[in-house]
Structures are given as C-alpha cells and as structure tokens.
C-alpha cells in the first residue's frame, strides 16, 4: 500500500474514532439490522412451519448483507461534504496526493471497519445459532452457499456502497442529504439481496460465486465513475470534470 494511501487511511480512522456520531452509528445501526431477525431465528422451535423458518433465516441473512451495504454510506457522507464543510478539502487538494490515493484511502477507512463489523457479528451469530438455535435453523444457516455469499459479498457490498456514497458526497453540499441519498441509492441492491436471502433465487455456491463476480464488475464500474467525478476543479467549483 502506498505511503499516501496509508496516511489518508490513518487520518480518516483517527477522525472517525473521535466523531461520536460515527462511532454511535457504527455500533447501533448493525444491532438495529440484525437484533430482531436473530431473535426470531432463536424463537424457532419444533412446531414452527418450514416456510416460517426459511423466512426467519432469510431475514437474519438480509440483515448481515445490510450491515456492509449501509454502514459505509454513513461514513462516505463525511468523505467529501464533511471536508468541504470544515474547509479542509482545498488544503488537501493542494498537496501532491493523487485522486486515486485519496479515494482508496477514504474507501478503505469505510470498508475495513464496516466489513470487520459485519464479519464479527456473523461469527457471533454462527456461535449463537450453533449453541441455542433449533436443528432446522442450524442446517439452513450453515449451508455452504450462505457462508460463501456472506464471505464474498461483505467486502464487495461495502466497496460498492462506499463508491456510491463518495460519488454522491462529491456532488452534495450537506452531509445528511448525502447520507440519505446514498441510503436510497442502495435500495435496488437491497432488492437483489432480498431475492437471494429469501431463496427466490436458489442459494447455491455457483449462484453465490457468480453474484460475487457480478458485484466485483459493478465495483469496478463504480470506481471508474467516482474516480472521474473526483476531479479537483469539480470538487471546488461546480465546473470542470467529465
């Protein structure tokens, strides 16, 4: 990793750690997404209908997809608008840092904590399910396709989310508006994940891997767009850029 990317990453993480709103959101939002679905999974017993079991597991799985998809949008809001609001954007842009270094540093600062949080919660979920959930739930949760999907999708979803978030942040003038627009922009992706989590699309390893490849292509396209939008002149004035 280049020195400047590491510098940007370290500064972003340092700043987020001292921002109570970001820290609070990073803790509360994941719990909000997964607390109720996990509770419903644990409430499954021998008398629960098979469709209800699949629904409960699907809700929990969707929750784990939402964590890496939504968390980075909160952080991305600060990525450009936050810098512009506190007047730090122009001094940064006058340094030799290249747009790719700045973007990757900022993206990693959102992807690393979001993906780490998602993985940690999923591991905790697996342990809880293994220890306390009904046998029918365990067999559904431990399906290889679900595991592969969580492992592969988590960083790819976080990456997609941060690129979209940064693209919106580059065009917005208010942090909250940027965060809300980024959340809205994730809705089509939530729809696709819902189809997978609730087994409308058959959850096989092949489907999970194909989905991951498609997500990676999407991430690459989003990177090219956000990279073009991250034009110095466009960021400081409303002119310039592509």
């Amino acid at each position: 990793m280049s020195g400047r990317i590491r510098t940007v990453l370290r500064k972003e993480l340092r700043e987020f750690r001292r921002n109570k709103l970001v820290v609070g959101t990073m803790v509360i939002l994941p719990l909000f997404f997964i607390a109720i679905p996990v509770a419903s999974v644990l409430a499954v017993n021998a008398e629960t209908a098979p469709n209800a079991i699949k629904g409960a597991v699907g809700s929990a799985l969707l929750g784990f997809f939402l964590v890496p998809l939504i968390l980075p949008t909160v952080i991305a809001g600060y990525g450009v608008v936050g810098e512009r609001e506190q007047g730090t954007l122009e001094p940064v842009l006058t340094t030799p840092v290249r747009r790719e270094e700045l973007l990757i540093g900022k993206a990693l600062a959102a992807i690393v904590p979001s993906a780490s949080m998602a993985y940690a919660l999923f591991v905790l979920f697996l342990i809880v399910v293994q220890l306390f959930a009904a046998r029918e739930v365990v067999s559904l949760v431990m399906e290889p396709a679900q595991m592969v999907a969580i492992v592969l999708f988590t960083p790819l979803l976080a990456t997609f989310s941060i690129w979209v978030g940064l693209a919106i942040s580059a065009r917005s003038s208010d942090i909250r508006v940027a965060q809300q627009l980024s959340g809205l922009a994730m809705l089509p992706m939530v729809g696709v994940l819902w189809l997978f989590a609730f087994r409308v699309i058959a959850p096989t390893v092949t489907v999970a891997v194909t989905g991951a490849v498609l997500l990676a292509v999407l991430d690459l396209g989003a990177w090219r767009i956000v990279s073009a939008l991250f034009d110095r002149e466009r960021l400081l004035t409303r002119y310039g850029g592509p």
Partner: peptide, 15 residues
C-alpha cells in the same frame, strides 16, 4: 514543489 495557505485555516477540528 509548492505550498498553499488558503484563506480559511481548514484544520481537522477533532484532531
């Protein structure tokens, strides 16, 4: 090779 001191200080206030 240059440095620019902008009109507003532009510091990260939490740092």
């Amino acid at each position: 090779r240059i440095a620019v001191m902008t009109e507003t200080p532009g510091l990260y206030l939490r740092l």
